[in-house]
Amino acid sequence: MTATMPPKPEPFVHPALFYRSDAEYLEGLVPFVTDGLDAGQPVAISVPGPQGRLLTDALGPAAERVHLLDMTVAGRNPGRIIAGVLRRFADRHRDRHVRIIGEPIWPGRSATEYPACAQHEALINAAFTGRDVTIVCPYDVAGLEASVLADARQTHPLLWEGEQRYPSADYAPDDVVARYNEPFQHTGDAEVHLVATAADLSPARRRIADRARTLGLPAARIPDLELIATELAANSLQHAGAPCELRLWRENGEIVCEARDTGQLTDPLAGRRPAEGFSGRGLLLINDLADLVRTHTSAQGTTIRAYLRP
C-alpha cells in the first residue's frame, strides 16, 4: 500500500486583523513585522499616515528596515494597489517569503470609493494564489460599519482578533466581487462624445479637455484626463470591437470621465495586475492616473468611470 502525501498548504496567507484600539493594533502587527525581519524576510507597511507613524514609533530602529508607504496616497485609488503597491514590492523579492501590511479601508472612505475597496480586498486572493506572501489587512472595528466588517470576513480566509487566529466561516470573495459590480445611476445631461473609429479619438479628446476646463479641472490635471479618455475609448475599440460613448461631468467636487460600450469585461483583475507586454496597459494606466476607478459590466455592456480630484 502506497501512502498518499497530504497536499502542501497554500503559501499565500491573507488574514484580516480586527483591532479596537491602538494597543490592539500594535499587539497584532509589531510582532508580525519583527518576526519577519528576524527571519530575513522583506517587510512592507502600507497604511494611513497616522497608523504608519504609530507603527514606526513602536518599531524604533527596526522601522528603518521596513518599506513604508502612506496608503491614503499610494492606494487612494483601490484599483492600483495590487499592481502599484503589493505586487511592486513582492515581485522584487521572489526568492523569499514576503510580509506586507496593507490597510486599504479606513474610516472616512466615501460611499463612492467603498465598492472598489471591497472588490480590491476580494481580488487580492486571486492575484496572489500560489505566491509565498503574507498580506495582513487591518480593520478598525470601532470606526468602521458592521457591513464593512462583514465584507472583510468574506474577503479574507483568515481572521485575527486579539490572540485568536481562525479561518473565516464566511469566506466567499467571488460573491463580494459580484455584489459590488453595481449599475451606475444616470448622469443627467452630460454631453456624449461618440468614438466609433480611431480617427475619432483626437477630436473627442480635445472636446473632453475643453469641457473639463469649464468644469474647473486644473491645467496640471488636463493631460491626465486626456490620457484617461483616450485609453478608455481605445480600450473599447480594441477589446469590445464597438463604439465608445464618452461623458464628462462634475460630481461632489470631482471630475468624472465615463466610457460606455457594448462589450463585457470578463477579467475582474484587468487593469489591476502588472501588464505583460502590451496587453492590459491601458486600464493599468487609467488606474495609475485616476483618483478612483469604478466599473460595472454585464452581458449588455460595460461602463467605466474614472474620478479626478481638482
Rank of each mutant, 00 (worst) to 15 (best):
E113Y: 01
G241P: 01
R53L: 14
P138I: 05
A16P: 11
R96Q: 05
E226N: 04
E121R: 03
A242Q: 10
Q238N: 07
G49H: 14
Y19Q: 11
A16T: 08
Q185R: 11
Y180H: 06
A204D: 06
N77V: 01
V13M: 03
S147H: 12
R213W: 00
P11C: 10
E145N: 08
D70G: 10
D57T: 15
V30M: 09
R20T: 15
R272D: 08
E64V: 07
V293A: 13
L292G: 11
R96H: 06
P9T: 12
L68D: 01
Q300T: 09
E163N: 08
A259V: 10
P50R: 02
A90R: 10
V195D: 05
Q264A: 14
E245F: 07
D70R: 06
Y166L: 06
E103D: 14
E113H: 11
L86I: 09
A150W: 00
A196K: 12
E182N: 06
N125F: 03
T266Y: 00
L37I: 03
D91H: 11
P157H: 13
G253V: 04
E191Y: 00
A196I: 04
V293N: 10
V256D: 01
V256E: 05
L201H: 04
D267M: 10
T2M: 11
G36K: 00
Y114P: 06
L123D: 10
T230Q: 09
R99G: 12
V13E: 08
P11V: 08
A190M: 01
R260S: 09
P268G: 09
E103K: 02
E251V: 00
E245I: 01
A23R: 13
Y25D: 07
I228L: 05
H239R: 15
L269I: 07
E251W: 01
L37N: 03
R213N: 10
I304L: 13
A169V: 06
G40Q: 07
E245V: 06
R165H: 09
L194F: 00
G130P: 00
A204I: 00
A62S: 15
R247S: 09
G52F: 11
P223R: 12
V47K: 02
A270N: 14
I101E: 01
F89I: 06
E103Q: 15
F184R: 07
P183V: 12
A290M: 02
T187L: 10
L59E: 14
P78G: 05
S147R: 03
R260C: 07
R88I: 02
A234I: 02
R53H: 07
A58C: 05
V73F: 05
A118V: 14
D200T: 04
A234W: 05
A90H: 07
L215M: 15
R221V: 04
A275M: 03
A290K: 08
A83L: 01
P42A: 15
A219M: 08
L149Q: 14
A212V: 04
R211D: 14
R309N: 09
S279R: 15
T302S: 15
R76E: 09
V293Q: 08
P6K: 14
P173L: 02
Q164C: 14
R20I: 02
L269C: 13
T56D: 15
R211Q: 15
I255V: 11
R109F: 00
I82K: 04
L86M: 06
F278P: 02
Y114S: 10
L285C: 08
R305W: 00
